[in-house]
Write a protein that binds this DNA or RNA. Structure first.
Lengths: 230, 230
DNA sequence: CTGCTACCGTACGTTTCCGTACTAAGAAAA
DNA sequence: TTTTCTTAGTACGGAAACGTACGGTAGCAG
């Protein structure tokens, strides 16, 4: 039984892992692959190994904004844990890579068999809800540079390399701001030596400095994760 | 067995209600009463009958913003459902009134005894998470008038009367904006006849018009509630 | 009835970010 | 290589909301 990079799977007891592992299938997910569509049934639940996915809340036709980021620390499809099968949010791959997935129905069955598994995943649900709530705070109170710094840190936490492959255009869509605003802010970061920017990619150069910019807008869900999952 | 005004309690099966009801205690909650403090153990879980409470996400010392509103349609203390006992959020009473409460430990016991109870409450958890996510969208993309309209509608849904007792100052703190901005926006609503404003209270006069202003920023969690709880 | 306090209305200069749009420079295709 | 497309840098006027602050008024306390 190999050790999983995914931290939820890594935190499972041997028994729970034995229960879940037969259902798991390793898949390669390309950039922009949609893994959950708004108000459509969730067929698979994903445990990212190297993939990073965005959860985007949608209202109406046009208004949308990223409310959470899921990487190797978490899982998609929380709605399944909550006894439902769909949600108004959209989820798709931002950074391509590998993930383990299980059919939603298979997961439901396993959840009924193990209370400890259910509890671990629900604790992650609490962490993720915290992440959404903190996104709401950042959207309401933080300046663009702070929100951008927060996003870079969260992405950095979830990548194996130090760089994130991401165009300004896409990043702007995630934050719900103009593409040009992202360009200006990233430029400022680069000029101060906090990041190295190449076409379509950002490399973290001085993480401490970026943390200083994000201030308290970064860190709350991360602390909850440590406390509850370790 | 009297019918509860709280819609979660009202949606319970007779068996589940029998299980839960002995634990419930009717309490009167005054305005601004804090029912959950950030990162402190939750002792009681509240099912509002006429109370309306705000869930406020906090980061650092100063930055805070309302991420959700709980009234007779819901419950506080979702962290307990998620297998935890605290959260980084704060919860307090906005509109005074009555609520039924249970000790968190008593609820935990009952949750282990009834799967259907657990499922109903978790479904509400999903609805509330949706509310938080939509708050994040509104904070990031909506204009102040739209956010204000959204807030008024959500409060209106949860009150028995048509009016909400609330100063501009407090409302501004909830939305994370200046008190003066709220005054100006409410003034505009009043001049158009959408609301009647008195010192410290807002009365909804033309709900349809307010819904039109809020647009798609209002309605998503409400639809989820209907779908999942009824 | 009077005075006090909390709440509301208004004002003004300033910051942040938007909408739009044009240009430049990498990267991929021909 | 040359062309074409995508991504990034820059510019400018304008809207939204901010920080701050001053004066007015409703309603309660004495």
């Amino acid at each position: 039984m190999k050790k999983h990079r995914n931290r939820l799977l890594a935190a499972l007891s041997a028994d729970d892992l034995n229960l879940l592992e037969p259902q798991l299938q390793l898949v390669q997910l390309e950039k922009r692959r949609v893994i959950e569509e708004p108000n459509k049934t969730v067929n698979y639940v994903y445990f990212p190994e190297t993939v990073i996915a965005s959860v985007v809340a949608v209202c109406g036709r046009d208004e949308r904004i990223e409310v959470g980021l899921i990487g190797c620390e978490g899982m998609s499809g929380l709605t399944v844990l909550m006894g439902d099968s769909r949600s108004p949010n959209s989820t798709y791959v931002q950074v391509e890579g590998e993930a383990l997935r299980t059919e939603a129905d298979a997961l439901r069955k396993v959840l009924l068999q193990s209370e400890s598994l259910r509890e671990l995943l629900l604790r992650f649900g609490h962490v993720f809800t915290t992440q959404i709530a903190q996104t709401a705070v950042a959207n309401g109170r933080a300046k663009l540079e702070q929100r951008l710094a927060r996003w870079i840190l969260m992405a950095h936490d979830r990548t194996v390399a130090d760089d994130v492959t991401m165009t300004h255009e896409f990043l702007a869509a995630m934050l719900g701001v103009r593409r040009a605003s992202v360009t200006v802010a990233l430029d400022a970061f680069e000029k101060k030596g906090y990041i190295a920017a190449r076409r379509g990619s950002i490399t973290v150069a001085d993480r401490k400095a970026i943390e200083k910019i994000a201030g308290y807008f970064y860190g709350v869900p991360e602390a909850e994760f440590k406390r509850l999952i370790g």
